[in-house]
Nucleic acid binder design. Structure first.
Lengths: 228, 228
DNA sequence: CGCTATTATCGTCAACATGACGACAAGCGT
DNA sequence: ACGCTTGTCGTCATGTTGACGATAATAGCG
């Protein structure tokens, strides 16, 4: 059996919402290949490391974040023969949805790290096949917001319904009716739980604070098709 | 950077419906490790082969089927350090949903291949971590039947509404109301198209024949929560 | 041939969900 | 106090759902 020499890496699609835009964490490459180009954070899987561990370690190294913050899941694996000029490299991509937190820490092999609005990233901007991986990650996030409570992963531990609505509006690039959205979110079993507290964000009537509820799936779901 | 020697394989979760049960194709291993144990079909990725190609090739080798038959997608990747006693092996699992077709062909490295009802497969029956991979594949199939027209992948090119309903009932392990199911399936945009023909299956009034429609997503979806 | 068993398909209805939108609540700045 | 802004509740017509009745179209049988 021909067993070729293969390197295995993990790459991270880290998404957050900053300044009203869906943003991804990118690293400016400090080494060849693609030196100076933007790329997804990532790195080699160590010899005695499970894939999830490797991804969690990279997340910590690049951002200082704990994988339990927000949401973390395997996205897909990419292994086309020519995707890395150094040789056969198979990469397992992970997707993380994170609240807006302090700036990332630049890793050792990166000249810089920055959050970039995903709408500003164009085909060919990223190294390797990272355009495709990023696009797949965004699509996964969009789809999962319909049927799961993952939108809360973009929010801090306590949040208002309006903040949650802005997550949906930003990720889906739509406007949602605040009154219907409020009804659906508070009506979906286990989506959010009131903490009892209230806050004033900017102007207007104080809003109730909520935290994430115990549900893993939304019933009923919030479908993108309609106007909510 | 420590680049350990890693082998990359693909494993296939092949699901079909035979004799009213959801069944998976298993191979009895003809070589060590786990000689004589049942396992998912699969094999090493060749040096110049993309992952999807490798999975499609394995599908052809094990079953003689073309990947365009039914449905074919990447499932997930498994790479825990100890999952294969031969060394570090990362496997990319693929999921295929297939119509009930002639028996599989035993591959060269397999002492035999057989369809086995997934309910008869118990924890520890399969080699490696294939129990887990199979369970993940089944769960993916269950979930995708809600929001996509993939149930048609289990059917021949032309099928009746009752046959499609049996797919749902088998995969979900529920009973569905024939009248409501008929209404929903024929009402969901692009799910199925009438061919004009009719057939008599066993007894009763002849049923209209349908083929798969153009939709990639179901609107509205058929949710598992209710009774349909 | 009529009867019955069987399956397919259409219809009805109450309960619930949805989208559009009005109304009021509860803060702020002036 | 007044208007502005944002949050929350309510209403209503329409659509979807689940439960289930009714009818259609066949085979098998006496």
């Amino acid at each position: 059996m021909t067993t070729s020499v293969v390197s295995v890496t993990v790459d991270l699609v880290l998404l957050t919402i900053r300044q009203g835009a869906l943003q991804a964490l990118l690293i400016r490459r400090g080494i060849e290949p693609y030196l100076g180009k933007w790329a997804l954070p990532g790195g080699f899987v160590l010899p005695d490391e499970d894939l999830d561990e490797a991804a969690a370690r990279e997340l910590r190294e690049e951002t200082g974040l704990d994988p339990r913050t927000g949401h973390f899941e395997q996205l897909a694996t990419y292994g086309a023969p020519g995707r890395d000029p150094r040789g056969r490299v198979v990469t397992i991509a992970y997707l993380a949805l994170l609240p807006d937190l302090p700036s990332p820490v630049a890793g050792s092999d990166a000249a810089g790290a920055a959050w970039r609005p995903v709408d500003d990233i164009e085909a060919g901007d990223l190294a390797f096949d990272h355009d495709r991986i990023l696009a797949d990650g965004i699509e996964r996030a969009r789809a999962k917001l319909e049927y799961t409570p993952l939108a809360t992963a973009f929010c801090p531990p306590e949040f208002t319904v309006a903040e949650l609505r802005q997550v949906y509006e930003t990720v889906w690039r739509t406007r949602l009716d605040p009154r219907n959205f409020h009804r659906k979110v508070t009506g979906a079993e286990g989506f959010v739980e009131a903490t009892g507290g209230t806050v004033i964000r900017e102007r207007g009537r104080p809003a109730q604070l909520f935290r994430r509820g115990p549900a893993a799936l939304l019933h009923p779901p919030l479908l993108r098709s309609g106007q909510v």
